[in-house]
Design a binder for these strands. Structure first.
Lengths: 126, 126
DNA sequence: TTAAAAACATACTAAAATAGTATGATTTAA
DNA sequence: TTAAATCATACTATTTTAGTATGTTTTTAA
């Protein structure tokens, strides 16, 4: 039961952008600072852009800016963008038939994780 | 961010044993009921046994019994036995140096998940 | 005008985790 | 004494994740 490292990488990148906000930062700046493979981070930024969490500017002296203010970006948005939906256990049987005995547990956990992640705003992590 | 299916399988098996408690049940009975590969389930039961959550009886008409009453077995014990410790993100840098910006998030999530899983008792899932 | 530095796209490879199988030994009650 | 159970361990297959490679496109600053 772990988050993937891409969630960690992406979150760190977003914290960097939050600290620079409303100025932009390039992938190479962030990757140096956080010691993340820049090519890998580039791809993660693409996902964040397609999910409207950041805005990119191409060309020399380009980079990324947050698409919204740091205080209105929820950590949950970032994590779910990079990892896919938080869904602690999607029991294949539960969906077609009645709920299984375990679903009470998974649902409760899902609720708690989401509550936590959507309650914390990016600004808090700067 | 998901639990593994072995956690699901193991939990279902434990619910079966809880329903039968204090009688025992064999792996083949449980695997048929829950449609889980019996060989795979066998191995999971081994883990649960080594963690003192169930007691086994070998030989013909053998099987497994819960080692404790269903109302005193916490779901967290089962899940952590099968999946390893709940540790949403063990940032390798955080351990050696100061906390990184993300650790506030992971710690909060860890706390919430553990609270949830250790609060629910096996008896509730029967 | 042009070269450098950035985003963007996509295919590929490597590594790790997970699920599941195979084989067989040991135990015990019917 | 045999059938049915646990137990142990090694192996294989699949899936997910991380990371690399090879470019193309865009834009600005020199």
């Amino acid at each position: 039961m772990k988050f993937s490292t891409r969630a960690e990488y992406g979150l760190k990148a977003m914290v960097n952008l939050a600290a620079a906000f409303p100025k932009q930062k390039s992938v190479s700046q962030i990757s140096k600072k956080e010691k993340i493979s820049s090519k890998y981070l580039e791809r993660l930024m693409g996902k964040l852009r397609r999910n409207n969490l950041v805005i990119s500017q191409k060309g020399k002296s380009g980079g990324y800016v947050l698409a919204k203010k740091p205080e209105s970006i929820k950590i949950g948005e970032i994590v779910e963008t990079l990892e896919g939906p938080i869904n602690p256990r999607g029991c294949r049987f539960c969906r077609v038939a009645k709920k299984c005995s375990a679903s009470l547990v998974w649902n409760k956990v899902e609720e708690q994780i989401k509550k936590t992640l959507y309650d914390i705003k990016l600004k808090k992590l700067i």
